[in-house]
């Protein structure tokens, strides 16, 4: 979406209500290196902004001026900062400001400043509940936007309200249903389940393991899901060997999977379209063997070798490093 068209609007230099303010040119006594060729509207507005900053004026017309600048360049952090200070000084309605910010967030979702401005407003408004559906709306535009996610996570941690937390897992599940490779959604799941503080006992761990294994079965080469599996185990200090049986189903080649066998809910089998072996599974199993110590070492080395030479050749140096590290560390 394009910024609002202000081509028709009158420049600040021609507005009678601004005639009392002296605009300040950006570079006055020097010939700058690496200047930007601004269009006249932007130059006009920022000249007046520098004039305002110089006099320290905090007034309603400054809100108009900073909005103009923000719409022309939403990354102008000084305009945002000055706008916030003006809002506070003029005791303006922050609820109205949030409505405007909703619009600006939709248009400029990729800028740091619009999200931080929101956060400042929310901190004062203390009404976080309507934020959750709003953020979901923004996620529909860009489901991996970093700022959107970190804002949502801030909101949850900052307010720490049960009526907010309960909405999170259903959201994550919807998003993973749409795209099981969405790493932002996986991270959010980890945040919600394990970083909330408390409430991650044995039942939770069992549930999460079942959930992630089912997702791995769906697309066994999805690194996001494997990383989540590792995340659970590392976080709870559980040995990787607890998942060895599951992993072994994914290190074989597809052909070996023809035979039907008893459905094992703990260890879901790879889906029909799976491209096996999964390099991530090989890596995982190698870690299992490495942890066994001397007895597992040769099996681990063999798996790393197969990654280096065949299944994950771009990381050859890394797999060779793992072999060296494991063999040097092992007792003779």
């Amino acid at each position: 979406m394009a910024p609002v068209d202000i081509a028709d609007s009158v420049p600040y230099s021609e507005r009678p209500e601004w005639s009392d303010l002296t605009p300040v040119a950006q570079y006055e006594n020097i010939q700058p290196l690496a200047p930007i060729f601004y269009n006249p509207d932007y130059k006009d507005a920022t000249d007046y902004f520098r004039g305002v900053v110089k006099t320290g004026e905090l007034s309603p017309r400054v809100l108009d001026l900073t909005e103009t600048i923000i719409r022309l360049n939403p990354a102008h952090y000084s305009a945002w900062q000055y706008r916030y200070q003006t809002l506070i000084a003029t005791k303006s309605s922050l609820a109205d400001e949030l409505i405007l910010t909703n619009e600006l967030t939709r248009i400029y979702l990729k800028t740091y400043q619009v999200w931080h401005h929101r956060r400042l407003l929310l901190t004062l408004l203390n009404d976080p509940l309507p934020e959750l559906p709003f953020i979901e709306e923004i996620l529909k535009v860009d489901v991996k936007n970093y700022h959107t996610w970190s804002y949502r996570q801030w909101l949850l941690a900052h307010y720490n309200r049960e009526d907010m937390w309960v909405q999170e897992l259903p959201l994550v599940e919807r998003l993973l249903e749409e795209d099981v490779r969405n790493n932002s959604a996986w991270h959010h799941r980890f945040f919600v389940v394990f970083e909330r503080g408390g409430a991650d006992g044995e039942d939770t761990v069992r549930q999460e393991l079942a959930f992630v294994k089912e997702k791995i079965a769906l697309a066994p080469n999805n690194l996001s899901a494997w990383n989540y599996l590792r995340g659970i185990l590392d976080h709870k200090h559980l040995p990787y060997s607890t998942q060895a049986d599951f992993t072994k189903l994914y290190v074989v080649s597809s052909i070996a999977l023809n035979e039907e066998s008893v459905v094992d809910l703990e260890n879901p089998r790879p889906s029909k379209g799976a491209q096996l072996p999964s390099a991530a599974a090989i890596e995982f199993l190698a870690d299992v063997y490495e942890a066994e110590g001397e007895s597992g070492l040769s099996k681990a080395v063999e798996l790393w070798r197969s990654l280096a030479d065949e299944h994950d050749t771009i990381r050859k140096k890394y797999w060779e490093y793992r072999i060296r590290e494991a063999t040097v560390a092992a007792p003779d």
Binding site: A34, P35, I36, N39, Y42, N73, Y77
Partner: peptide
């Protein structure tokens, strides 16, 4: 100098 599209980096 930088062309006008770099206005988005005026604060950078």
């Amino acid at each position: 100098g930088f062309p006008a599209r770099y206005t988005s980096q005026d604060a950078s």
